[in-house]
Amino acid sequence: MTSSAVTPPVLELRNLVVEFVNRHGTLRALDGISLSIAPGEVLGVVGESGAGKSLTGAAVIGLLEPPGRIASGEVLLAGQRIDQLPVEELRHIRGKRIGTIFQDPLTSLDPLYRVGEQLIETIRTHLPVSEQQARERAIALLAEVGIPAPEKRIDGYPHEFSGGMRQRVVIALALAAEPELIIADEPTTALDVSVQAQIIAVLKKLCRERGTAVMLITHDMGVIAETADRVAVMYAGRVIEIGPVRDVVKSPRHPYAKGLMGSIPALDERPERLLQIEGSMPRLTAIPQGCAFHPRCPHVMPRCHEARPVLEPIGAGQVACFLHEVRS
């Protein structure tokens, strides 16, 4: 946790719990998530699919799909609580103060409207500008995200753009009202490998220029290593390790993070072998007591079965594991 700095973090989650209530009972999908993102910082959120990464993003912008709901905890945007805001006020925050990028650019845009129309409507929803000003701004944005001949392309329909180009449009839409924070949910997963790097580069550059913070949700450790300032590792709806990217990627402390990082082959150094974690992440219905990772953990101890480790500061980061609690 950052010390009592003058500027509060752009985003802070305190003990966020998200639950789904269905007829089989209550499922706890996010179990006490705490993390923060400083202004201009890129926080990578990693984990296997189903770990709750995307759910965390959806919870922040208040777009959990029913029956999902925030059961407890707090979401703070620049020090101000937003998880209990009325629907209409939260809407003003979405798009204006928090931009969002979804996984699939092919389906994110409305196929029936021109790209320009969608940009202009987003700009005019959040900023008091005229149609003409909004259009100029839209063209400038398209130019910034690297779309050639933007004054012409602005009148194209989404289907006339390639996947990579569409994701650039989506980035332009996310940046349209100069938000403080961007939530990028798997922004490159659906794209060709060849354009993934370009998209990440565009996103990184624009956010750095504007000082926009980014919550980068991905399972691609390569992207994290290259882009993020800090990393949060999630497992079964919990954050199990969070810290500066160098520490977490190079010397992860949590056994699960170790396994996860072991799964990226680095080019410059030859690892002895790729670590692999036995088993798979538990279903939400069957999260074991104590540490959720204990059935797969190579270092499991008796108390891991009973008590649940919480995030404890260690070095520049935090880790939720009894192995490290003992030492610190």
Binding site: R91, R94, G95, F102, T107, S108, P111, T125, H126, A176
Partner: peptide, 13 residues
């Protein structure tokens, strides 16, 4: 559909 989800995320009315 996704584009409606994205429209919500854009903060449209």
């Amino acid at each position: 559909s996704d584009h409606i989800k994205f429209a919500r995320a854009r903060g449209l009315t």
